[in-house]
Design a binder for these strands. Structure first.
Lengths: 143, 143
DNA sequence: TATTGTTATACTCTATAACTATA
DNA sequence: TATAGTTATAGAGTATAACAATA
């Protein structure tokens, strides 16, 4: 049935996001990393020593919300809050060896999930979609 | 800074969705309809007499979650739960005159929000994005 | 004065399970 | 037996406000 909703990009974006989110969870399985925890681990591995404030800014979430995520990653021994001589305010985040290993493994799983899920689009279409989303983000996200 | 996250469609989808969601709220303002309430009102106006079960299916949310949405719309006098002689189990949803009026008005506001927000993409790009999202949904949403 | 990390708190959205009344 | 609407409940995810320690 035709609906005005179908012509709204926002609504289609939401529905598409729900599909991806659900499949991500299903793929990572019970006890697996959630999307937001995975994204935090990714940046910590890529930018070892990043502070929580900078990580929150990069992920576009509040510092307060990041605490639980970092707690979870630290409990799982995937990263450490380290102390810096001379600056007792920051506690840069450093991935453990296990953290780096888990990241590489989970990244492959996530890529598999994306490849499978987005296979309903042709390869050029996948690139198009990615490009359009990036351009939209670049033009609209504040800062 | 380059990150593996930037190459994941899902992550970009999430970030784009967050931007749209935030702007939707800001545009509709305090006390305005939320996105999900607007989507429900839309279908009730377009398909007067739709049941809650069918509406939940169409919106891809649980029946239980729809109750609060319908409650809100009924409190705002934008729709009515009507009774059907001969079937006391269903209570089809019918938009009120105010509901139809508000819908038309809000739809224009929402279109304005989308036009403004997505103006960072060229018109052809907007169509492309919409088309790709629809195709993805069609290929992946269950049923 | 401003910033980092943190806690407390609340709100939105969604889902699961179970109930009731009906069909 | 199955379905429509509902309630209760919980779990993600996010945000705001405030605070202590530190810069």
């Amino acid at each position: 049935m035709a609906s005005a909703l179908n012509d709204l990009i926002g609504y289609n974006l939401k529905r598409a996001y729900m599909v991806v989110q659900a499949d991500f969870r299903e793929t990572l399985g019970k006890g697996g990393l959630t999307a937001r925890v995975f994204s935090a681990l990714t940046l910590v591995v890529e930018q070892p020593g990043i502070t929580q404030s900078d990580l929150a800014r990069a992920l576009r979430i509040e510092r307060s919300g990041l605490v639980a995520i970092v707690d979870e990653l630290e409990e799982k021994k995937l990263l450490k809050r380290v102390s810096v001589p001379g600056n007792r305010r920051v506690q840069p985040l450093r991935p453990t060896a296990a953290g780096k290993k888990v990241f590489r493994s989970v990244l492959q799983t996530v890529r598999g999930h994306e490849d499978r899920l987005f296979s309903v689009l042709a390869p050029e279409e996948q690139v198009q979609l990615l490009t359009l989303l990036k351009k939209f983000r670049q033009g609209t996200e504040k800062d």
